[in-house]
């Protein structure tokens, strides 16, 4: 975990519901400062390009653009960097927990996915985690990953670098996250450090984004991303 006295993370909030934006703004504490808001794809790209925040909280379903919502925003901000030279990172936030939405936005480049029912403290923690370059997996996303990589069916990668399957360790981490464990608890459970857990999660995220596994491409095809 990070030290709380760090300066607040700058965040741009993209969501087409004004009530939700003001709700998040009110909820998020001192650790996060919202430097911009946008209700649709085109405004979001403009605001993000101008503000260059380390983290963008991004709704998956947005009006405008090419009709792909949050994915269009991620594509429109490709290669954008903050003043510190860090890439602008995206944390998807949605009411939808349909598999194709989740997988599509992750494959477009988001660093994590949380649902809108998340508590304020968890959201703050997730934002900080994304700002640090780590991935944020909700239990549900972990479940999808286990499903999509056939890990629940017993498929395990022989080599860690294999893109189409999870390694045994990654699978364990995903299973614990799906069971509702925090990273800290996962680390304790598996007798590894939190940093190692984060490494595993990031590597799963990378596989999720790069793998050409059939189920993943099928999901992406469903969203006409390929």
């Amino acid at each position: 975990m990070n030290t709380p006295e760090k300066k607040p993370v700058e965040v741009v909030l993209v969501d087409d519901h004004r009530m939700f934006r003001s709700g998040v703004r009110a909820e998020l504490g001192q650790a996060v400062s919202i430097v911009g808001e946008a209700p649709d794809v085109d405004a979001a790209i403009a605001v993000i390009r101008q503000a260059k925040p380390p983290v963008v909280l991004l709704d998956v379903h947005l009006p405008g653009g090419n009709g792909n919502g949050g994915i269009d925003v991620i594509h429109g901000c490709k290669g954008l960097e903050t003043v510190d030279g860090q890439p602008v990172r995206f944390l998807a936030l949605s009411v939808s927990d349909a598999a194709e939405d989740v997988i599509a936005v992750i494959r477009a480049g988001a660093r994590g996915y949380v649902t809108k029912t998340i508590s304020a403290t968890d959201l703050t923690r997730a934002i900080q985690r994304v700002a640090d370059g780590d991935a944020v997996f909700s239990p549900r996303l972990a479940g999808f990953v286990l499903d999509a990589f056939g890990a629940a069916a017993g498929e395990v990668a022989q080599v860690d670098e294999e893109l189409d399957r999870l390694s045994a360790r990654e699978r364990e981490v995903m299973r614990l996250i799906a069971r509702g464990y925090q990273y800290k608890e996962v680390a304790k459970e598996l007798f590894i450090s939190v940093k190692t857990v984060e490494t595993h999660v990031s590597s799963v995220l990378r596989k999720l984004q790069l793998s050409s596994r059939h189920e993943l491409t099928a999901w992406a095809m469903g969203r006409r991303l390929l």
Binding site: P139, G143, A153, G154, A178, R179, Y181
Partner: peptide, 17 residues
């Protein structure tokens, strides 16, 4: 409270936490 159910070839596991 979370519930995780995994059905695989090695059996069924469910976790309630």
């Amino acid at each position: 409270v979370s519930l995780y159910l995994e059905v695989g070839p090695s059996g069924v596991e469910a976790f309630v936490r």
